[in-house]
Amino acid sequence: MVLPIVSDKLTLARTRVVATQTIVLPAPLIAFGNLFRDYLGRGWIVWVVILIVSIGLLLPRLRANRPALALLLWVVGGVVLMYVLNPVLGFFLARYSWWVMMGIALLVALGLAYLPKQAVTGAAVILLGLSFVATPLNEQSSALNDNLEWLHTHIQPGDALVIDPANNCGSPSEWDYAIRAYFPDGLLVASNPDGYRRVWYVTFNGRQTPALSHQISDQGVAEEFVGPAGCFIQLNQAAPDVNGILFENGMRFHGVDVLDADGRLWSAPAVRHEGETVTIRLWWSADKPIDLDYSVGTYILGGSLLAQVDGAPQLIFPEKAPHETSRWKTDQLYIEERTLKLPDQFPIGDYTFNLDLAVYDSQSNQRVNAPGEDADHLLLMRQIFVKAW
């Protein structure tokens, strides 16, 4: 059970090395300056002055003060080493080199210890004040990596990523690195949701580009999400059949999804064994106010009735939506889930069964007409294949 996980992590490590080699750092002095600015926060100018004073106090004493020499090598040598090894490790970032900051703190403390007592008191007051200045860590870059790592386990074939210009996930180079690391086989990125049923929308939640946000929300249902507001990724999923099939009572059927054991869409042929279950998701809307509370029947048929679930729509979306169809609103998608259980025993062989749908008045049991129904007013949704051992 562990081997697939180990293999996946090794693949991720290899792709990380390949992606890291594509990152080009600035010239050494500029790169070092940027890194120390990340360490020192918004009060970095004051910290630089304090660091220069500390080093100035230590330089005349380096030969006799081995700890000072060791700390200086710790700070300077550590940064140089990370810069040189960055094409392999990709660790030339503040969050990976926190240990260098410890060396800076110790170096400053050791140097300021040589100040006169009154100056030491003044330096202590300044340092205490700087401790209340927030350090602008690049949280969004970290969120981008965390989000794409999560997305790697949730995305499905055919899904598209639509990136709103209004997002704070990271620079283009950070996007390039993260996509190469977590999606070595590529990631489908689209400029708009047209033509895609499942769209992962990346945006700054609350600051979306209005036109793009409305286009995405109009085409699907907002589902699972990940990330902080600045780097927010949410799945928007459209119905299987946008146009749908209109029943005479005003209910419009927008198609069926078959789900696997983990609740993910299963687009391949649905194959089950005896005694197993078939979980389906039905999509509905209402073209007009519906006069009665209708029931929905789902059946697995193959010469005889093998499994069925009857009753009012078992809605999972919208949250707290009414199961009574007479209370449904127009211009609203409704999603329900049902689970049908196959018989425990079949003769050995391969079987093909129909997964059928009916809408009916539960008081009279009269089924509602719709285009494509058979003589029994059953609508074929798809076929179910059973392999009996």
Rank of each mutant, 00 (worst) to 15 (best):
V6R: 02
V6F: 03
L10Q: 02
T15V: 01
T15E: 13
R16E: 11
V18F: 11
V18G: 05
T20D: 04
Q21S: 09
I23Y: 09
P26A: 00
A27S: 06
N34C: 08
F36L: 14
F36A: 13
L40H: 14
L40T: 10
G41E: 09
W44V: 06
I50S: 08
I55M: 14
L57E: 15
L58Y: 10
L59C: 09
P60S: 03
L62I: 12
P67N: 08
L72G: 13
G78R: 10
V79H: 09
M82I: 04
M82A: 13
M82E: 07
L85I: 12
F92D: 03
F92I: 02
Y96C: 05
V100T: 06
V108D: 12
L115I: 13
L115M: 15
V120Q: 15
V120R: 15
G122C: 07
V125K: 08
V125W: 12
I126R: 02
F132E: 02
S141D: 11
L144A: 10
N145Y: 04
L148K: 09
H152N: 11
T153D: 15
T153M: 14
I155G: 13
A160I: 02
I163M: 04
P165T: 00
N167W: 00
D176H: 03
A178T: 07
I179V: 06
A181G: 01
D185Y: 00
Y201G: 00
F204P: 01
F204S: 07
G206K: 06
P210S: 14
S217P: 13
S217T: 15
A222I: 10
E223T: 14
G227K: 01
Q234F: 06
L235R: 12
Q237T: 15
A238M: 11
P240S: 07
V242K: 14
F253V: 05
H254M: 09
D257Q: 11
D257Y: 07
R264C: 03
R264M: 05
W266M: 07
A268Q: 07
V271F: 06
H273T: 09
E276L: 03
D291P: 04
L292K: 05
G302T: 12
G302A: 13
A307V: 09
P313V: 02
P318L: 03
K320S: 11
W328F: 02
Q332Y: 01
E336C: 01
R338C: 08
L342R: 12
P343D: 13
I348H: 12
F353V: 05
F353G: 07
L357K: 01
V359N: 01
Y360V: 00
Y360E: 01
S364W: 00
N365D: 07
Q366E: 07
Q366I: 07
R367Y: 04
A370E: 00
G372D: 01
L378M: 13
M381S: 08
